[in-house]
């Protein structure tokens, strides 16, 4: 065998991938009942792909959990079921029964919609199954309080985050010890940027919801956002007809709350190109960030939102 070894320069993405895999394996080794929160967006797509790499040839040794609001895009439900099947992982879908009974929806209930379906729904689901660690696809470049969060982020028994007393996190050593009832949110893609995510999806050919690519779709204008009409639950104003526009999404959530951008980008390089030339941030299209002023995401997280 050749005695001289060629040194290899790992690319930035290869390093990020190795780091994320390392984090996932630490969690599986050190916690009792981990779960992966799977929201079907691009970050979840990357996270799931990394999980499949981390444990190969075993399937990832934890289930996927979708905290559903019943208001996601149809295309998201389709991809979700397909990916669960392909990965060989168990898919748990949780819908907050109280929100369901009360018919909570984004049109009539404003912030309560996110609060009950997502924040409460998540807490209920974690408690119901007794998960002590949950992977989430949040990135530090998304938002200013996320930029402050540790990779292993602790939650009290009632799921609260205390941003002022985070554990020091040195090197790549993670302290996963916790008291009974406490749980950890783990963010394996903390150090990825939006561009890294797109580029990785491109290089690895990861399946994503087609809504990320431009196509003619029926839209209406609401509070300055372009909203896509995805089903017949959408309440029109008298005489209002949806307008067909070439649009795509930078982030996906509940369809009535996701703002689209007008675009002609039909391929990943075109999407990336538009993203790099744009002058607004990806979260701008999210109604949820706007309801409580400057520190809104921080406040939501303290209350148990991911």
């Amino acid at each position: 065998m050749d005695a001289v070894t060629d040194t290899v320069t790992l690319t930035h993405l290869q390093r990020l991938e190795a780091e994320s895999i390392h984090i996932m394996r630490e969690v599986v080794a050190e916690t009792e009942k981990p779960v992966m929160l799977y929201s079907v967006g691009k970050d979840s797509a990357v996270m799931l792909h990394l999980a499949r790499k981390a444990f190969y040839p075993s399937p990832p040794p934890f289930p996927l959990l979708h905290v559903d609001t019943t208001w996601k895009f149809k295309a998201m439900y389709e991809l979700r079921d397909k990916m669960a099947q392909e990965s060989g992982m168990e898919l748990l879908v949780y819908q907050n029964p109280e929100a369901k009974a009360k018919g909570i929806n984004p049109f009539d209930h404003g912030p309560l919609h996110t609060d009950m379906w997502k924040t409460e729904g998540l807490k209920q689901a974690l408690d119901k199954y007794g998960f002590d660690a949950a992977f989430g696809g949040a990135r530090r470049d998304e938002e200013k309080s996320r930029a402050k969060e540790r990779i292993f982020s602790f939650r009290s028994t009632n799921h609260r985050w205390d941003p002022k007393s985070q554990r020091p996190e040195l090197w790549n050593i993670y302290n996963a010890r916790k008291a009974k009832g406490e749980s950890i949110r783990v963010f394996p893609i903390s150090n990825w940027t939006e561009l890294d995510i797109w580029q990785y999806i491109h290089l690895e050919n990861i399946p994503i919801v087609p809504l990320y690519f431009a196509a003619k779709r029926p839209t209406v204008q609401r509070d300055g956002l372009t909203i896509m009409v995805d089903d017949d639950r959408f309440p029109f104003a008298p005489g209002e007809v949806p307008e067909m526009k070439s649009i795509r999404f930078r982030t996906l959530g509940c369809y009535p709350l996701s703002g689209a951008v007008e675009s002609e980008a039909k391929t990943l390089p075109e999407v990336i190109q538009e993203m790099l030339l744009t002058t607004t941030s990806e979260r701008q299209g999210r109604v949820i960030d706007k309801d409580a002023g400057g520190a809104s995401m921080e406040k939501k997280k303290q209350e148990g939102y991911f």
Binding site: K144, A147, K148, P163, T193, L195, G294, A295
Partner: peptide
Amino acid sequence: LLVDGLAAEREQGITIDVAYRFFA
């Protein structure tokens, strides 16, 4: 204020915890 992302930091004008930011 672009980096001091926690409410307590903005109110007091100091940094409390590390912020990780990315640029190229």
